[in-house]
Design a protein around this nucleic acid. Sequence first.
DNA 1: GCGCAAACTAGAACAGATTCTAATCCGTGT
DNA 2: ACACGGATTAGAATCTGTTCTAGTTTGCGC
Lengths: 245, 245
Amino acid sequence: MRTSHAGAATVPPDHVTHRPDPGRQTPGRATGASQGPADEASPGGPHGAPAPASQGARTRSQHQRRKRIVQAAAALASRGGVEAMQMRTVAERAGVALGTLYRYFPSKMDLVVAVVSEEIDLLETSIERRPPSAATPAGRAVDVLMRATRGLMREPELADALIRSLIMAEVDTPFGDRMAGLLLRVSGEGLTLGSATEEQVALAGSLGSVWVHELLEMLRGRRTYEQIQRRIEIAADRLLAGFGA
Amino acid sequence: MRTSHAGAATVPPDHVTHRPDPGRQTPGRATGASQGPADEASPGGPHGAPAPASQGARTRSQHQRRKRIVQAAAALASRGGVEAMQMRTVAERAGVALGTLYRYFPSKMDLVVAVVSEEIDLLETSIERRPPSAATPAGRAVDVLMRATRGLMREPELADALIRSLIMAEVDTPFGDRMAGLLLRVSGEGLTLGSATEEQVALAGSLGSVWVHELLEMLRGRRTYEQIQRRIEIAADRLLAGFGA
DNA sequence: GCGCAAACTAGAACAGATTCTAATCCGTGT
DNA sequence: ACACGGATTAGAATCTGTTCTAGTTTGCGC
């Protein structure tokens, strides 16, 4: 059962799959949610960081371990998709016990999310290094989205896996908001999720969801890169009209 | 392994999950895709109908059987979501053997898709019976989408399950196009997927993906009905501007 | 009435995710 | 140096989707 445990331990509970959990009811043992007295509300760095517990000693090797895990996962996923990224295999490649892997990532989805996070980090870095130069807000947004699209296209297996998981994930880490923020940032001058109007945030979010959808269609083989570009342009032109400073 | 069989048999291969299948490689036995000499390219009615083989005799009881299965599946899903809709259980409730269930629906996803199809049929029927009356194209589209939203909200478990599966499904049955067509129909006078311009189709599709995304957010508990409505209105106003006859 | 092929059935078998167990490690406080 | 608790580990055990097997049933043409 996926009844998420209350994040308790001195470990890096990197999970994100929480959900209201509307009375699941897997027969069999009904382990009451409980276990560790130790508490701590994961400070939550940028992406779900390991969040060292109280002290901070073992943290070092734990960071390494987490890194090895995500790395192994990404490697496996990049060829063969999520299916090839089997928990046993990941654990093996990362040199940790299956149980440990599950301690770091309560579910496969959490692991996938971690990998996706890294990808998004990469995109943001790329954007910083070479900001979109188009004249219009829509143009800049399209630039960013297509850049991301190209990046994902390079490893279709991984992309497919990640995008799907991303959508499926009962993620607490709003990737949607992250993309919306990114789009807002490149669209208007000093726009941010904070300073933008509710309408602007909604519109940026909408563009983001259109992009994800198109991406999905492409991965299904129903869209070519060009078609996506065209569609994103069409949507962006309307959704982001009048966003310029 | 999900290496889809070439649709061969005198049965109702209701599947839809096909995918390029980029070299899967489950170890163990590597059963060569083969088995039935009988062939037949499922005529494919509206939604993936049972598609009787050559004759047409046994079809009757098969229709019943298929109906019982989908019904059982929907019932289970409506309380407990996809997780509660276990293949074994569905087969049991429908009074068929697990093997038979798999003959009708090659994978769980196919079953889910069948259930979703019924839901969409319901929506289309509802629209016909009581067409949206708003004055603007956007208004009518919003009307339709929010009506669908309310319908899905009634059975959150089922909705969640279905929407997710729908997105995930490597469906050959483009639900997206179906929604887009529906939206086009209520937006412009004689608009249809055929008569609309490429841009219009793209825009209707975009609105559809925004809706799905918002729905997903709602199911994740990050949106209220009102928020969705507002966001859909915002997006529709821009995306469907100038759609009137 | 007989024989065949496809559809069905019951149930075993497999695979991969997730959970559980018992024993060992390791860093910290004493 | 010693005890303690959380972190790890190897591996068994569960759970559920999917596949496979062997035997039975059913509709049809002869």
